[in-house]
Computed example of a mutant assay.
Amino acid sequence: MLKIGTQNESTRDRWVIDSLKKISKGKSILDAGAGESKYKKYCKHLKYISQDFAKYDGKGDGKGLQTKKWSVNKIDIISDITKIPIPSKSVDVVLCTEVFEHIINPINAIIEFKRVLKKNGELIITAPFCSLTHFAPYHYSTGFNRYFYERVLDKIGFEIIELSHNGNYFEYIAQEIRRVPSVSSRYASDRILTYSAKVLSLPYLILLQFLSNKDTNSYELLCFGYHLRAKKL
């Protein structure tokens, strides 16, 4: 079975879960922009606190990709992510996954993360390199390159421990080829063309799988996103 273009989320989840497992038992963790708190169950060894602005309802404005259902009923702190009502230097770890594209000024969020983190506290971030419109109208950026983190984190006062890419150019293109039938069904409204898109995608996916197997650093052009761990100095 061809897996190319299907492993964006699963790869990211494995990385986040592995990062959470490395945190010492009893440490406090703030899940900033937690949404439905999908990683809470992996934080049983930690003192877990969730934060979200709690305005997204799954439907948004109906544009782009929406989840249809979305529950933030169990969020601990409802606030602006750049003004979290907790004391300075009060948490050991800040987790922020797939949130930056939904913040008008993510640099201000990083500054706030630094404020709430204890000295040598850890920041764990994932965000897309490139993304389609989703969770609209709360979608303000398509993504972030590694150079954003390398430039911004150092200036704010963080040391990057790990900065790794998720996927490569060929995997990203495969992901979008797989999406063509659903997009054509929604925006082109032609059953024959939609079916044709589904059938014709197979040879392209096979080709992309071979190319991905031969890949040497095409992630520098395009990838799903970046995963980052940094320490507050």
Results as ranks from 00 to 15, higher is better:
184 S>Q: 12
214 K>L: 15
194 T>N: 13
229 R>P: 03
166 N>S: 04
45 H>M: 12
177 I>R: 09
135 F>P: 06
28 S>Q: 08
126 T>M: 07
28 S>T: 09
39 Y>G: 05
45 H>N: 15
233 L>P: 05
128 P>L: 00
179 R>A: 04
229 R>L: 14
141 S>T: 13
50 S>C: 02
48 Y>D: 00
95 L>T: 09
75 I>G: 10
107 I>C: 01
173 I>F: 11
23 I>Q: 07
181 P>N: 14
188 A>D: 12
141 S>W: 02
233 L>H: 10
117 L>V: 05
56 Y>M: 02
230 A>V: 04
232 K>G: 00
25 K>Y: 14
61 D>I: 05
119 K>T: 08
116 V>G: 04
210 F>Q: 06
89 K>Q: 03
120 N>V: 03
101 E>D: 03
222 L>R: 10
184 S>C: 12
87 P>C: 00
84 I>R: 03
80 D>K: 01
16 V>Q: 01
88 S>H: 06
45 H>R: 15
163 L>I: 15
174 A>P: 05
228 L>Q: 08
68 K>G: 11
216 T>S: 15
118 K>P: 01
200 L>P: 00
123 L>E: 02
80 D>I: 03
12 R>S: 09
38 K>T: 10
59 K>D: 11
212 S>G: 04
112 E>A: 03
18 D>V: 00
82 T>Q: 03
35 G>Q: 10
77 I>Q: 04
6 T>N: 12
24 S>L: 12
47 K>E: 09
215 D>K: 08
112 E>P: 00
12 R>P: 03
150 E>K: 15
199 V>S: 10
58 G>L: 08
160 I>M: 06
109 A>W: 06
70 W>A: 14
231 K>C: 06
196 S>P: 01
7 Q>P: 02
228 L>A: 07
40 K>Y: 11
98 E>F: 11
212 S>N: 13
127 A>D: 03
5 G>M: 07
89 K>D: 06
43 C>E: 01
112 E>G: 01
193 L>Y: 13
206 I>A: 07
143 G>K: 00
99 V>H: 07
204 Y>M: 13
214 K>E: 12
4 I>M: 05
192 I>G: 00
139 H>A: 10
195 Y>N: 11
204 Y>I: 13
117 L>T: 06
122 E>V: 11
8 N>K: 14
196 S>G: 06
45 H>I: 11
71 S>Y: 12
167 G>S: 10
154 D>C: 13
204 Y>R: 11
37 S>N: 08
159 E>N: 10
48 Y>R: 07
191 R>F: 14
85 P>V: 01
1 M>I: 07
2 L>R: 01
108 N>E: 05
227 H>Q: 15
211 L>M: 13
136 A>M: 06
144 F>P: 08
219 Y>S: 12
83 K>M: 04
51 Q>D: 08
105 N>C: 05
211 L>R: 05
105 N>S: 07
